[in-house]
Amino acid sequence: MRREVVAGLIWLLAFLGAVPTAPAHEKGVIRLRTNPLPAGSEIELRGERLPRNAPLRLELRGTLETFPLAEVRTDSAGVVTGRFGLPAEAGPGNYALVALAADGEEVGRVELVLVPAAAADGHARHEAGPVEPHATAELMDVPVARNPAEWVAIVGLSLLSLGAGAALLRGSAGPRACGRD
């Protein structure tokens, strides 16, 4: 058994060792001047220790949506600064502003929170007029798509559970039989 345990450990180490861990690019740092921010406003950011003289794509990634922000280029020190407009259609919530290298690898990230415009600027609410949200007991129409592989997994697990359960019950002694041996 000891040999089996040792062999198992070797396999595990080999598997862990095979997982690539080194990124192609150095991870940079992105800082925002203000955070949280209202949707539709401008952010002022400064990125450092990014790839030098490299084109970067800035994206605003929310839980459900992703918004492209800008294409920028770092200087010879790997620094980028600028002001960029946030999409007005982005809903309030938690977002990540990510910088992507030309090969798509993420080289920098900063978390930010978008708040409703009225919450961030009390004047805006008066200018635009209050927008009363409509409360409803109805359920959302969420587009849930399940691919065939998921169906196979679900039905497979169900049948396996039902089969194993029935086999266990059929093979086990019933209440009357118990205690008679």
């Binding site: 409360a135 409803t136 849930v144 679900i154 169900s158 049948l159 559970s161 039902l162 359960g165 086999a167």
Partner: peptide, 30 residues
């Protein structure tokens, strides 16, 4: 053993129920 048998039957039934009748979600709270 019998409890595991019943439990697995329950799991199988629940798995199908969950696939056929998933609960929805309401709109964000006002």
């Amino acid at each position: 053993r019998r409890l595991t048998g019943y439990g697995l039957l329950l799991l199988g039934g629940l798995a199908l129920l969950a696939a056929l009748f998933p609960p929805g979600i309401g709109y964000p709270v006002v």
